[in-house]
Design a protein around this nucleic acid. Sequence first.
DNA 1: TACCAGTACATAGTAACGCTAGCTACCGTT
DNA 2: AACGGTAGCTAGCGTTACTATGTACTGGTA
Lengths: 108, 108
Amino acid sequence: MGKQITEMLKGTLEGIVLALLASQPAYGYEITARLREKGFTEIAEGTIYALLVRIEQRGLVDVTKVPSPSGPPRKVYTLNERGRDELDEFWRTWSFLADRLQQLQGGK
Amino acid sequence: MGKQITEMLKGTLEGIVLALLASQPAYGYEITARLREKGFTEIAEGTIYALLVRIEQRGLVDVTKVPSPSGPPRKVYTLNERGRDELDEFWRTWSFLADRLQQLQGGK
DNA sequence: TACCAGTACATAGTAACGCTAGCTACCGTT
DNA sequence: AACGGTAGCTAGCGTTACTATGTACTGGTA
């Protein structure tokens, strides 16, 4: 895939990560791995860490530091109330866009 | 809607405009109006003109100047071969993303 | 011991894009 | 003359993903 996916991810990647965290808390390295499993093979690690910094600063997640058996300590992110609100809003916005694009794609 | 849609439109707005042009040629002012009809009420005119400049420079459209009965001359944009290729690629990328988001939204 | 791969986090600089806020200009009506 | 609708254009800004690189902890192996 090319640059199109890079631009499309702007605005959606945050929602994707919030959705992952909604199913269960996770740390950065783990999130990157999960995304790769789900088909997002080209997302750079650095992108995820930067995004996590942002959502932490906006107060969408709670953070705890947990020792790792196989490396440096992990920063585990848990979605909080505000994060869930933001995720709801994300799904509404996404649906708005997806509905309209489906119309465009199907009907002439 | 808030800032989420602004970020989400990055990458998709171009595809949306290409899709509009695929159904029939149009000029900037007209495209803005059509978008508003389709529910994209908050897209600024300036955004569309800048986008049209970009896709013209990338050679995705052919341009002809047509006199208007009610104002300055119109720049009519017609999707060409490369534009159609780009649009196909856009739909593939969009489907990739939409499929994965649907999985995320539905299944836990 | 030295090296390396895997794990885990972080950041400075860059490119791309939509938005804000303006501007010019043509036309018909008031 | 003034105004609203039509039509196009642009400089500067904020946000975001990517590139590239660095640090550091652990365990295995040459």
